[in-house]
């Protein structure tokens, strides 16, 4: 190095030039450009700098109050840890005892023989969410509502754990995406119908969403139609209604045939 740093033209030129560029761009980004914005949070120097720097603030301004739903909607908050909380002396064993009240409709070991859904091996997150929704009334059912009304949150967790622990029966027909109906395998992108398997297993699973194969045909059809008509609305932020309402009758039939294994 030749001479003191501050007299070296390379040092002064490069550091000084970069510094000037930085000052200039900070001025443009934090003061000059924000001055052309009409948001109140960009007015005034300090405001403008904070907003441009990215300090979290409330940008809504004056807006009408949120409209609340006239009907009951699901209030279940599902995260991957929702079911992780330590069960106080509960768990699968306690769930098995509680499940005695369910066997009449859902079968001795969770395998349905009627038009009620099969529960054996279902994802615990899905079971828990639906039980909570039956309890709150977000999912209407004259049969289920009184059965879950008196149960505590821990009871629902134990029931979910129990049924999730039972062996799942899979129908071989649903293993092969090549033979699945188009609506199941590819969906219809422009109608916002993704492949069923992108949430309901096979491709990947989404938290709180059940697998469907195999479930009784009538059950699947009733539910899909209820989503399509908006009579069932406990799907968070309409995620299933968005899909079902765009399906044709033929597509609904084809998909429930496929998932019930009745083709």
């Amino acid at each position: 190095m030749s001479g003191p740093l501050l007299r070296n033209r390379w040092f002064v030129g490069s550091v000084g030039g970069t510094f000037l560029l930085l000052v200039f761009s900070v001025f443009v980004g934090f003061v000059w450009l924000p001055s052309a914005q009409d948001d109140s949070l960009f007015k005034g120097l300090l405001n403008s700098i904070c907003s441009a720097a990215g300090v979290p603030r409330s940008w809504l301004g004056e807006a009408s109050a949120p409209v609340t739903s006239p009907v009951k909607v699901s209030e279940v908050v599902m995260t991957p840890t929702t079911l992780d909380e330590p069960s106080s002396g509960g768990g699968v064993g306690r769930g098995a005892t509680l499940a005695l009240r369910c066997t009449m409709c859902h079968g001795l070991r969770g395998v349905s023989t009627s038009q009620t859904p099969t529960l054996a091996g279902q994802y615990a997150s899905s079971l828990y969410k639906e039980l909570r929704d039956f309890q709150s009334g977000a999912r209407a059912s004259a049969v289920m509502a009184p059965l879950v009304a008196e149960l505590h949150d821990q009871d629902l967790r134990d029931l979910s754990a129990y049924y999730a622990s039972l062996p799942r029966q899979q129908s071989p027909a649903t293993q092969d995406l090549q033979s699945a109906p188009d609506i199941v395998a590819t969906g219809a992108p422009m109608r916002n119908i993704p492949p069923c398997g992108s949430c309901h297993g096979r491709l990947t699973a989404k938290l709180g969403v059940p697998w469907l194969d195999p479930q009784p045909r009538d059950y699947l059809k009733t539910q899909l139609e209820a989503f399509a008509h908006g009579t069932r609305r406990n799907d968070t932020s309409a995620q299933m209604r968005n899909i079902a309402r765009n399906m044709t009758t033929e597509e609904i039939d084809a998909s429930v045939d496929y998932y019930s294994g009745t083709r």
Partner: peptide
Amino acid sequence: PEVGAGFKVVHSIFTAM
């Protein structure tokens, strides 16, 4: 949405460089 507009402008100008 998580980065402030000011830093976006700064990075834009440096990108030109």
